[in-house]
Nucleic acid binder design. Structure first.
Lengths: 224, 224, 224, 224
DNA sequence: AATGAATGAGGATTCATTCAT
DNA sequence: AATGAATGAATCCTCATTCAT
C-alpha cells in the first residue's frame, strides 16, 4: 500500500535541503510531490477551513491528481494534520525568550517578536483555531496535532513568566499563561478582522506591558 | 415566492407576539417550523462550521424535509445568517455597563458578566469567529451580520472606557478597545480548549483589572 | 430526508396494479421510478454480483440519475436487499404442494414445478447464492433477506415431507429438507453451467423420485 | 518483462522442489513472494468474490506492494486464475474411488471422502461457484480453469458410476452424473449457510445411498 | 526480483437546490 | 404552509495498472 507518513512531531522540517542535494536527487521525486501537495493544502485550508478544503482543489493547486494525494496521505484528515505539523517548526521557534537587558525589556521583545510572527506566518494559528472552534470529535489527528503544539507553547510561556518574575506563585503562573495565550489568539483574530487598521505590533507591546505589570502585581504579597 | 426573512438587525425576535395576534393561528405553525429549523441549524453549525452545515443534516435534526427549509430560507447562506441573527439579542443585551460604585468596580462587574455570558450562550461568538477565520468572501450576509454586531460591541466598550477613564486620549481608547475585545475572544477560545480546567470568571476579572490599570497608565501624562 | 423503504417482507408485490389505477396516478411517479430502478438493479446484479453492481450502471440502465437512486434507497446494500425482496413473492408462491393423486405423484409434480420456475425466474436464487458464497459479514440486509426467504422455503419443504411421508422421524425430516434444498440449489447451478445440455425438468423429476424413495426408506423401521 | 505463469493445468504445484534445486537460492525468494501473494489472494477472493478482490487488499494482506503483484501476475484475472489453479491438485486428488468391498460401500466411501474434503479445503469450489454464477464473460481464464477441473471431476464420477453399476445406460449415466455433481455443489452451499448445524458427512452418505439406489433403479429394465 | 510513485477512470455517496403538487 | 421527488455537480476515496529505477 501507500507509504503514509506518521506525524513525526519532532522533525523540524529544514533538513530537506541537503537531502535534496545528496543521493536521492531524482529518485526522491516523492518528497517533492509531497511538498507541493502540502503547499497547496495550506493555501486552501487557510482560506476555507476543514470542510471547505476539498481534495479536488488541492489537486488542482498542486498540479497532482487526486489519487496521488492519497498515495502520500491516508485521507483528508491526515493531510491537514501534516499541514499543521509542517508549520510547527516555524512557529515554535519563535517562542524563545530573546536575550536582553531587564526582564521587562526582554518580555516586551518577545511580545513584539510574536506579533511580527503572526503577521508573517499566520497559517498555523489560523488553521488551528478553525479546528478548535469546531466541536465535532472527528478529524482527530489534525486537531490533536494543533493542541499538542499549543500545549508546548504554553509551557514555554509559563517558563518565561517564572524566569522573569520568579516569585510568582504557581496558580498565578497558570492563570497568567492562559491569559497570555488567549490574548495572543485574540489579537491574531483582531488582526484578521481589522486588517491594516490594527497595529499588531503595538498591541503586542501593550499586551506584554500589561502582562508584566499584572505578573508583578500578583507576585506582591498584599493584594486580591 | 417564499417569505424569506431579510436580516433585520434590530428585530430582537420576541416581538412576534403581536404578529401572532394579528394573522392568527394560521401562521403559528409556520413560525414553529422556522424555530425548529433554526434550533437544528445552530446545533449543526456550531459543531461543524459553515461548510460542514449541510441542509440534509439540518433537515434530519429538525425533522422537516429539506424542501421545507427552502420555504423558510432562501438558501444556506441566509439560514446561517438567521442563526446568527437570533443569538444577537441574547448577546448584545449583556453589553450594558451595570450601575455601581467606583469605576473600577463597575468595570470589573462588566467583565464578570461577559465571562458568564460566554459560558451560557457561546453559540453566537463561536459561529462568528468561525466565519471570521475563513478568508474567502462566501456566506456574505452571515459574516456581515456578525461584524456589525461586533462593531456595536466595540462601541460599547469604547464608551465604557471613556466613561470610566475620561482623560484617556482617543488613540489609546481605540487601542485598548481592540485589545479588550481581542482578549475576550481569546478567552472564549481558551475556555473551548481547556474546558473545565479554565476558570473563565477569574480570567475575566484578571482581564478587567489589567485593562483598568493599563487605561489609567495610558491616561497619565508621563509614561512609555 | 428521503423516504427509504423498510423491507416489508410480507407485501407480496402484486397490489401495485390497482394502486396505480387509483388516486395517485401522476403523483405516484415515485413508485414508478422505484420500480424502474429495481428492474435495472436486478438485471445488473444478476450478471455481475454484489460488488460488480455499480450505482452508475443501475443509473444508466434505469435512466434515472444516481442521486435519485439514493432518494429511494439508503445505499447499495438496501437496493440489493430490495431487489431480493421483490422476487420473494414470485418465488415463494411456487412452494405449494399441488393437489394430486398419490403422494409420489404430488411430490413429483412439485419438483417439476420448481424446475420450471428455476428456468423462468432464476434471479432470486442466483443473487441469493452469490451473496451466500461470499463470506464477508457486511452488506447485511441483502444477505439477511435472502436467508429469511430461504428459511421459509425450508419450512415449506419440511411440511411437505411430513405430509407426504407422515411417519418420518424428525431428524430425518431435517436431514432430508437440507438435502432437498441443497440439490435444488445445485441443479440450478448445473443448469447455469451446462445450459441447454441440462434437462432441468428431468433432473428435478429424478430428484423428486429419489427423495421420495429415500424418505420412505428412512421412515421404515429396520435399516441404517 | 515479468515471468508471468501461464495456467498449466497439469502442474500440480509441488514439483517445484527440483526447480529449486536447479536454479538455486536466487529464485527461492521470488517463489516465496508468489506464495504469499497467492495466500493473501485466496483469503480475499473467498470472502469477496472477483470484483471484491482488489489488488490493494491483496497487497495489504500479503505485505507486498501492489507493483510486486504485477511482477508475478499479468493482471487481476491471472492472479485469480492462479489462485484457482493452486487448489486444483488438492481437490482433484480426492476424486479417486477408494478400493473397497462391495460397490455400494465403495460408493459410500467416496461420498464421505468428498464431504470431508469440502470441509477442509472449500476454497476451490467456493471460488469456482462464485465465478460460475456471474453471467458476464469477464475473468475468462479463471472461469475456464474451473470448468475444466469440474469437467474432469464429472468424468471421474461417470466412470465410477459405470464401474459400480455397469448395466446403466449412457443417458442415465449422464443424468446421474449431473445430478451427483449438482447435489455436491448444493450440499457445499448448504454447509456454508447452515454452518455447524449441517452434518456434511451424514448428508453425503445419504447422497451416496440415494444415488446408488437410483442408479440401480435406472439400470433395471422395468421402471418409469 | 522487486518497488515507490504516479495516474485516469470510476467507486459510492452527499451536496445545494428546484419544482410540481 | 409545506413536501415528495428529482437532479447535476461535487464530495472523498479506491480501482487496476504502469513505469522508471
Amino acid at each position: 500500500m501507500s507509504r503514509v507518513s506518521q506525524p513525526t512531531l519532532c522533525r523540524p522540517e529544514g533538513k530537506s535541503v541537503d537531502e535534496q542535494r545528496t543521493s536521492r536527487k531524482r529518485r526522491a521525486n516523492g518528497e517533492e510531490s509531497r511538498r507541493r501537495i502540502l503547499d497547496a493544502a495550506v493555501e486552501v485550508a487557510v482560506e476555507r477551513g476543514y470542510d471547505g478544503t476539498s481534495i479536488a482543489l488541492v489537486s488542482k493547486k498542486s498540479g497532482l491528481p487526486a489519487s496521488s494525494i492519497y498515495w502520500h496521505f491516508k485521507d483528508k484528515d491526515e493531510l491537514i494534520a501534516a499541514v499543521i505539523e509542517r508549520s510547527f517548526g516555524t512557529w515554535l521557534a519563535l517562542w524563545v525568550l530573546p536575550e536582553g537587558d531587564g526582564p521587562r525589556e526582554r518580555f516586551s521583545a518577545l511580545a513584539t517578536l510574536i506579533g511580527k510572527a503572526l503577521l508573517d506566518s499566520p497559517d498555523f494559528l489560523r488553521l488551528g483555531l478553525m479546528l478548535t472552534l469546531e466541536r465535532r470529535p472527528v478529524e482527530a489527528s489534525a486537531r490533536r496535532m494543533f493542541l499538542q503544539v499549543r500545549e508546548q507553547a504554553c509551557r514555554q510561556v509559563a517558563a518565561t513568566l517564572r524566569e522573569v518574575v520568579p516569585e510568582l506563585p504557581d496558580e498565578s503562573v497558570a492563570l497568567l499563561t492562559t491569559y497570555a495565550m488567549a490574548a495572543a489568539d485574540g489579537l491574531f483574530i483582531a488582526k484578521e478582522i481589522g486588517g491594516d487598521s490594527v497595529d499588531l505590533v503595538a498591541l503586542f507591546e501593550l499586551h506584554a506591558h500589561s502582562l508584566y505589570d499584572t505578573a508583578v502585581r500578583l507576585s506582591a504579597p498584599g493584594r486580591p
